[in-house]
Design a protein around this nucleic acid. Structure first.
Lengths: 196, 196, 196, 196
DNA sequence: TATGAATGAGGATTCATTCAT
DNA sequence: GATGAATGAATCCTCATTCAT
């Protein structure tokens, strides 16, 4: 087994293992030992690549957010109409619950940390404003191109993201109670009602 | 100091102390010792009133949810028109962020536990379906009384709660980025648009 | 076994155990676990009585220095003549090597810490100036009472302590090479030569 | 950079780096990794030149002692009169505190190891008896050459070394309390008093 | 020779829980 | 009822040492 040029591979392996552990058992009981075992590595090597457990966890959120963002972008970017982009974006956001449930596990587990950990807060704030600004861009551009009516977009970006996140959380927490597919339809029709 | 019949007082004191600790430092460092100190009691006594730490924490969520529910009900119940009830309810939900921020701290801290702890999951599911069913009742009753048009209420209950929770979370996590007051207005106008 | 009023007993037990461990194996390998085992206690209890390992170690030096000082005082105090006090003091200092070898073990082990640990430095400085000031007092008082000639006492206090410590260290480090008893005689005759 | 015949250079570099680390932070935190970093080398190479950490540390004391000895000898050797040699020697010993403070750092840090590590003990004993034997030689030779009176030299060698070491330690530990220069004068006058 | 990735045992510390008082 | 001393398993992290390259 090679020993050189492994930094990226190892870091990814550890981050992935951490996510899997997080999904299995949540924050409580998320030990470095367990992560190392999951990654098939020794505990020591984790400290070779990450300053400490917190540093590792911060990398985990960053990675989870980046991945989720990338997934959405891959689907939305090729589209040309702002309207299509907006609705595809909404659809993508909603389908994260099923396509990438790990994202929600990570999100839900870190939400509680936000108020106590400045670094987590920074990442979380950045992530949320990132999300809204994408939607805002579609809307503004769409208005400019006369795809949407101009006057109704007040706070619509934030509303869409809030609604998407709220639904995502509810569907994740209580999938038996909240029907993911049907709520996805309602989500889209909510947006439609606004932009038309 | 009386030594008998203190059960209710002590339990409430401990639950309150736990909430304060939770708000101060989150789950990390939430030790039984710290809770006891905050409550001005010994660690031992906590085990007299609660089976263990988990039992205490479950009581904390229950209490937080019950309190929050009660606060909303107190404001909404006296009203007679379903429309008034609905909008007052929405307003109340949104103002929890400012009026009772502890509720969000507790909520955010426990969200991550939901998937791993069946008891937390039960409480959380119950809480969420409770929330939606109240809104649904206003809507159905409102339609019956012809306060609202009949055909537009598809999933509106869930949408309102999801949006309310999403906005609440966003305003709690990043108050500098998301303006609570303005979003409250937009929230209400979103609902209005739907029921009219 | 009683559980109350044990603070002093426990603290002493832990400090004593630490000294014994220190004598057995030095600083290296002085683990809290080993100390606890030596004291017949659990590791946890050590942190109940001491903030951390460093706090415990500081208490150990303080205790060692205090004990050593007390031993000397017990012998010297009853004496009335300053000359007697001085020579008894010298004798006592020198016999620490044999009577209380733990003192030297502790001293030698902590000397290296002095430059890096401000608290150790404070204790050490205090201890050394304490030692010299006792000797200085005998000398000054002795001169005042005409027990000693007045002009020869320049730095004699420091010289006596330095010589005592140097001899103590040498006899401790290499007892086969340096004859404790004989050096004690020479030590005294050195002082005599000066005060006469 | 040459790759062969580097043994001596590398060994010296590592020993020097170790001394610098030791002076910076003492024994605590003196890791092979830190030493390697200080020396600008990899950790692996240290094990190429030294059997293990202990072996390296033993070399460090040996080197420190040898250097210190050499420094003294350089100054003393050219002198012809035994009296001059003796006093220059005393002066040199005392000035180590200022001229080569690293020596005392090393000495103080290793003193505690002496009783537990036979190899350290051997080196330390050798060093101390070396020191005294040099002084003894001056004295004996001086008596033979009638530079000193014959009868007063009992244990004077040990006393001088003990006093020198004691003063050195005190001046190193508490330089604000013990005035190096003045004590040097007193040290010399102490010796003078004896040999005259 | 030289590197630095990798290991894993061991250390300090925390903390839920119990129990004698 | 109430206390807080006591336990010891579990946690994070460090570090001497090895070894593939």
């Amino acid at each position: 087994m090679p020993k050189i040029g492994m930094e990226k591979v190892r870091k990814e392996a550890v981050i992935g293992a951490t996510m899997r552990c997080l999904c299995k058992g949540g924050f409580t009981g998320l030990s470095v030992k367990a992560i190392a075992a999951e990654a098939g590595l020794s505990t020591g090597i984790i400290y070779h690549y990450f300053r400490n457990k917190e540093d590792l966890l911060l990398n985990v959120i960053r990675e989870a957010f980046a991945q989720s963002h990338q997934n959405v972008m891959q689907v939305v970017e090729p589209l040309t109409s702002q309207r299509d982009k907006l609705f595809k974006h909404i659809e993508s956001i909603h389908s994260v619950v099923l396509d990438n449930p790990d994202f929600y596990t990570v999100l839900l587990n870190f939400l509680g940390q936000t108020s106590n950990n400045p670094e987590v807060k920074k990442i979380m704030t950045k992530f949320l404003s990132n999300l809204t600004s994408y939607v805002r861009r579609y809307l503004e551009e769409g208005v400019a191109r006369k795809e949407f009516a101009p006057d109704k977009t007040k706070d619509l970006d934030v509303m869409i993201i809030a609604l998407g996140m709220g639904l995502g959380i509810m569907c994740t927490l209580a999938p038996e109670t909240f029907d993911h597919k049907q709520l996805g339809e309602s989500f889209k029709s909510f947006a439609e009602k606004y932009v038309e």
